[in-house]
Amino acid sequence: MRLRVSYDGTDFFGWQVQPGTRTVQGELQEAIFRLTGERRTVVAAGRTDAGVHALGQACHFRTQTPTPAHRLGPALAPHLPPDVAVLEGRDVPPHFHSTRDAVSKTYRYVILNDRDPNPLARRFAWRVRPDVRGNGLNVDAMREAAAHIVGRHDFACFQSAGSPRPDTVRTVHRLTLTRAAIWPAWSPVPGEEIANDAGGPWLFLEVTGDGFLYNMVRTIAGTLAEVGMGKRPPEDVAALIASRDRTLAGPTAPPQGLYLVRVDYDD
């Protein structure tokens, strides 16, 4: 069975079960056990880190429960904590695998580009202050830099140490930056309809690709933020990708601004 799951990652030590810590996988597996009496492993399309959120994580598990797939979300709700919700259940073939069968994933990174702190956003966005002259991020420059990322490339320069992949070639299908005056961060679709490029403190980076390396989206966000601050020119990103050198890229942006928006399959 495949589930579509949403969660606030603030109080979790990431997705994957780890001894002595609270994780999303652990909460889901315990809820499934309470409902069905079955001890099952829930496999995610992507293992999110501590503090990272999900609007549409995909995962699967095998079960003999008589509960219909479309009723599984409401059935699990009493057994789940308030920071996790099952949005949808779907029957899938026995050979289905959430990770291997995914054809694309979409992530969103949220930046609050404002002089004043916002206590309500501190768990859900990265605050990047304007410079001493009050200038915000240069979104046009960031978009110019982002154009170098779209396409099929070796993205080793955006991969953090800790979970290296032998194959670092990935395809980024789409990368957009949208500035807005209001908060559409939890929308299941991009917020272009409320975009206001003339102003607004919120900046939403949205990227779709066939797969992502460890911390790849957060490092892209950190690198593009440096472009927006004027710390590096937009054309520097092309040379950075060609170098394959992580030390030349920008910082890994903090986890609270990152959202797994959706995972797509051929069905």
Results as ranks from 00 to 15, higher is better:
Met1Trp: 11
Arg2Asn: 10
Gly9Leu: 10
Gln16His: 12
Gln18Tyr: 14
Gly20Asp: 14
Thr21Cys: 11
Glu38Gln: 12
Val42Asp: 07
Ala45Ser: 15
Gly46Cys: 08
Ala50Val: 03
Gly51Phe: 13
Gly51Leu: 06
His53Asn: 04
Ala54Asp: 12
Leu55Cys: 03
Leu55Tyr: 07
Thr65Leu: 04
Thr65Val: 02
Pro66Ser: 08
Ala69Cys: 07
Ala69Trp: 13
His70Gln: 13
Ala75Thr: 03
Ala77Ile: 01
Pro78Glu: 13
His79Asn: 11
His79Gly: 03
Pro81Ile: 11
Pro82Phe: 12
Leu87Thr: 09
Leu87Ala: 10
Phe96Pro: 03
His97Gln: 13
Thr99Gln: 15
Thr106Asp: 10
Arg108Ala: 09
Arg108Asn: 12
Arg108Glu: 12
Tyr109Gln: 02
Val110Glu: 07
Val110Leu: 07
Asn113Ala: 05
Val128Leu: 10
Arg129Tyr: 14
Asp131Phe: 02
Arg133Val: 05
Gly134His: 05
Gly134Ile: 04
Asn135Glu: 14
Asn138Tyr: 06
Asp140Gly: 00
Ala145Trp: 09
Ile149Ser: 04
His153Gly: 04
His153Cys: 01
Asp154Trp: 06
Asp154Pro: 01
Gln159Cys: 08
Ser160Asp: 14
Val169Met: 11
Val172Cys: 13
His173Ala: 11
Thr176Leu: 04
Thr178Ile: 13
Thr178Arg: 02
Arg179Glu: 14
Ile182Thr: 15
Ile182Cys: 10
Pro184Thr: 08
Trp186Ile: 00
Trp186Gln: 10
Ser187Met: 09
Pro188Ala: 09
Pro188Thr: 07
Val189Gln: 13
Val189Ile: 13
Val189Thr: 11
Asp197Met: 05
Ala198Ser: 13
Gly200Arg: 02
Pro201Ala: 12
Leu203Cys: 08
Leu203Phe: 08
Leu205Ile: 07
Glu206Trp: 05
Gly209Ala: 07
Gly209Asp: 11
Met216Trp: 06
Val217Pro: 05
Ile220Trp: 14
Gly222Leu: 08
Ala225Asn: 03
Val227Trp: 11
Gly228Gln: 07
Arg232Ser: 12
Pro233Glu: 12
Asp236Asn: 00
Leu240Trp: 09
Ile241Thr: 03
Arg246Met: 09
Leu248Trp: 06
Ala249Lys: 01
Ala249Trp: 05
Pro251Ser: 05
Thr252Asp: 10
Ala253Val: 02
Ala253Glu: 08
Ala253Lys: 00
Gly257Cys: 04
Val261Lys: 04
Val261Asn: 07
Asp264Trp: 08
Tyr265Cys: 05
